[in-house]
Simulated scan of single mutants.
Amino acid sequence: MFNSVNSATCIGLSSILIWASLVAVVKLITESLTPISAIALIYSFSAMSILVLNGLPRFQHMSKVYVWGCGALFVAYEILFLVSIALSQNHDQVLIIAMINYLWPPLTIVFSILAKQLNYRWPIVLGFIVSVLGLLLVVNPDILNLRQFLHILQQNPIAYFFAFLGALLWPCYSVLTKKYAQGQNAVPLFFVVTAVSLWGIHFMMDEAFIFPQLNMWLLIAVTGALVGIAYSNWNQSLQFGNIKLLILATYFMPVLSSFMSMLILEATPSLSFWIGTCLVTFGAMICWKSTAEI
């Protein structure tokens, strides 16, 4: 499918750029429409995009644990993460939610160790602590002030809880997928279920539907299509590209996502936010360097 390893790797890196921009773009769209319907529209286009590129998988021949178990985790993660963005009350909260979500790289390593998929060395403990301290610094620059920390969380507890729960679910999905997928790819099916579930939530909540204007339709269609393309390209790039470089690049997503959000949302993160973001990335990289596949 690709002319060279380098082209496959570049395609994979483009997926990371799309995901890093997703948080800010989703927030822009949900600010103009009702939250759940906006997300449902985006993922409807994503589902159509990935179906066009990959087709509907023959899930009858796949492991039931993978299809039902991993599928449920995938759908739950996508919904929780996207809804947490939609529920954010301002752009500063969007940045915090993104950082909570990007705890998943070190958590994936921890869960992989518990599942006996990785060997590890003691610096992994240091890496995980550094990531958590970085997140705490992002949420509350006065990191030792517990009362201030709780006050910040109480400003939007549901959104922060959804983001944190999503950060726990994605590592579970990753670990179980590695064990049960057996080389199969049911992501197109998962996207369809995610889109249908979001529309179900929209109707159950009796949420008003704001019909998007033409420019918003274009933004929704492009965003949704790019998300579908990113997932499709990522699976291909992992097979044909430089997997070590691609995995390493994912650990820079907190910094990249913050930078893209700053540009798109015109936010002005504080110095402590950037320090915390870099600590999250640095801690994840320590965890990565301290492990090896069994």
Rank of each mutant, 00 (worst) to 15 (best):
G228P: 10
M262P: 05
C278P: 02
L248Y: 10
A186D: 00
G200S: 12
V227P: 00
F209M: 14
G200W: 05
L226N: 05
L218N: 03
K244M: 05
G200E: 01
L198P: 07
A221L: 14
L169W: 03
W170Q: 07
S197N: 00
M216H: 03
G241V: 05
C278D: 00
S270E: 12
W274N: 05
P212Y: 01
L256M: 15
I243C: 01
T277R: 05
S232G: 01
Y180G: 02
N185Q: 03
L238E: 02
C278W: 00
V255M: 15
T177L: 08
L271S: 06
V255K: 09
L168G: 02
Y251Q: 13
I229Y: 13
A181F: 01
L245R: 11
F191I: 01
W170A: 02
F259C: 05
F211E: 13
L263K: 11
I275E: 01
I220N: 06
K244I: 02
V175H: 07
A225C: 12
L219G: 03
A167P: 10
L189K: 03
C278S: 08
F273I: 12
W199F: 15
Y251R: 11
M260C: 07
V175R: 07
G224K: 04
F240S: 11
L271T: 11
T223V: 04
M205L: 15
L246D: 08
I220W: 06
S270L: 14
I210H: 08
M253Q: 15
T194S: 11
S232P: 06
W274E: 05
I243N: 02
G200A: 11
K244A: 08
S237E: 01
L219Q: 10
Y251V: 08
P254A: 05
S237F: 00
L168T: 04
M260E: 05
S270Q: 13
P171T: 02
M204D: 00
V255S: 13
S257C: 14
F259T: 07
S174Y: 06
L263M: 13
F273Y: 15
P188L: 06
Q182L: 12
P254G: 08
I229Q: 07
Y180I: 06
G276K: 12
E266R: 12
V255T: 14
I201L: 15
Q184M: 08
P188W: 04
T268Q: 13
V222L: 13
F190K: 06
E207P: 14
P269E: 10
I229D: 02
L189S: 03
F211R: 13
M216K: 05
V222C: 09
P212Q: 07
W199R: 09
